Simulated scan of single mutants.
Amino acid sequence: MHQRLTKLSYFLSLIRVQQWIKNLFVFLPMFFNKQLVSFDSLISATIAFFLFSFIASSIYCFNDIVDLEFDKQHKSKKNRVLASGLVSINEARICMFVCSLLGLGLSYYLSGFDLFLVLTIYFLINVLYTLIFKKIMVLDVMFIAASFVLRLLAGGVATNTELSYWIIIMVTLLALFLAFAKRRDEVVIYMEDKILVRSNIDKYSLKFLDSILTVLSLAITMFYLAYTFSPETKAQFNSDYIWLTSIFVILGLFRYGRLIKLRQNYVNPTKILLKDKAMQFIVFSWIISFYIIIYT
C-alpha cells in the first residue's frame, strides 16, 4: 500500500498538479459576467478547469521527455521524477497519452467541439513551444501569453460567455509580466551560479528585462484603470466604484516587484501564490472587493 502511494506521488509530481492553479483563469469569464452564482455555469467552468488541467499535464510529461538528457545534467532539474529515474520514460509516455486522451476525449463528449478545438490548439502550440519556440528569445514568452489567453477562451466557450477585449488585453499583459519576471530571475541565477535554467537564457540581459518589466507594469496599471473608469464597465456592472479594485492590482505589482529584487521563491508565480502570505492577501482582497461591487 505504501509503495502504491509513493508511486502515485511520483506521478502527481510528473503531471505538476501544483501548476493546475494557473488554470483557474478559466473561471474569469464567468466571474466578470456575473455568472458565479449560476450553478450550471459553475459546473461547466469546473469541468473545463479539469479538462484543461489534464491537457496541461500531458504537456508537462512531453516536456520532461523531450528535455530528459538536459534535465539529467541540471543542478536542480535532475531531481525531477523522470530525470532521477523514479518514473520510467515509458511510464511518462503512458501518462502523457492518458492525460491527453482524458482532456481531448472528454472535452468533445462533455462540452462539445468548441472546447475540444481550444484544447487542441493549446496542445499543439505547446508541443511546438517545447520542440522549437522555447529556444527563441522573446518568442518563448509570447507563446506563454498565448497559453493564458487560451485558458480564457476555454472558460468562455464552456460557459457561453463572450470575452471582452479588456480582459484579453489585461490577461495578456499580466502573462507577459510574469513570464519576463521569471526570465529575469533565471538570468540572475545564470550570472551568479552559472546554472543554465533553459537553453536560451544566456540571450537575455538584466537591462533588457528590467526595461520590459517597467513598461509592462505601467501598461497593466494604465489599462486596468482605463477599464475601471470606462463607461462600458460602469454600465455593465452598474457601479461607479470598480476603480477601487485597482488598489490591489497596484499593490500586487509592487509586491511582485519586491519579490523579484529579493529573489524569493525564485519568482515562480505558482510558488509565490501558494506560499507568500502578502500576495495571497492581495489576490484574495481583489477577488472579494470585485465580488462585493459587482454581485451585491
Rank of each mutant, 00 (worst) to 15 (best):
L218G: 09
L216M: 14
L218A: 15
S100I: 03
L216D: 09
V141G: 06
D210C: 02
S164A: 02
I168R: 00
F177T: 02
V188M: 09
S84H: 15
N200V: 11
V215S: 11
I136N: 05
Y129T: 05
Y190W: 14
L196W: 15
S147G: 15
S84L: 08
L153W: 11
R93Q: 15
Y109R: 09
L152R: 11
D140H: 14
V149N: 10
I201E: 04
V187C: 01
Y190K: 06
R184M: 02
S147M: 05
F116A: 02
I195E: 08
V98I: 12
V187A: 00
E162M: 13
Y122R: 03
V149E: 10
F148E: 08
V157C: 06
S205Q: 15
V215A: 10
Y109I: 14
S88F: 15
L163Y: 12
C95R: 02
K203E: 15
L124A: 12
A92M: 12
C95W: 05
I144P: 01
L104W: 08
K207A: 08
A175P: 00
V81N: 09
L101P: 03
D114Q: 14
L119T: 02
A158R: 03
F116S: 01
L218Y: 07
Y165N: 13
V138H: 12
L206I: 07
F208R: 11
N160R: 10
I94T: 08
G112V: 06
T172L: 08
L213E: 07
I89E: 14
L174M: 13
K182M: 00
F133I: 09
T161C: 11
A175L: 01
M137Q: 12
F143P: 01
A145R: 04
T159H: 07
T120D: 04
I169Y: 09
L117F: 15
A92F: 05
L117H: 03
V149Q: 07
R184N: 06
A83D: 07
L152Q: 13
F123M: 13
R184G: 07
L218F: 00
A158T: 09
A154H: 04
T172A: 07
T159K: 10
V171H: 06
T159S: 13
F208P: 04
L216G: 04
K207N: 13
I125E: 05
T120R: 08
I121K: 04
K203D: 10
L176E: 05
D140C: 02
L150A: 06
L218V: 13
N79C: 11
S205D: 09
E162G: 13
A154T: 02
I89Q: 12
D193S: 11
S84A: 14
L206M: 08
C95E: 05
G112E: 00
K203V: 11
Y165S: 15
V81Y: 12
L115Y: 04
S100E: 10
S164I: 06
R93E: 14
I125Q: 09
R80K: 12
M96W: 02
K207I: 09
G156A: 10
L152E: 04
L124I: 14
S100C: 08
I212A: 04
K182S: 08
V87E: 01
D185G: 15
F97R: 12
I201T: 11
I125A: 06
L82G: 08
Y122M: 10
I189M: 02
K203W: 12
L176D: 05
Y109D: 06
M170I: 15
L110Y: 14
V127E: 01
R184F: 02
V157A: 03
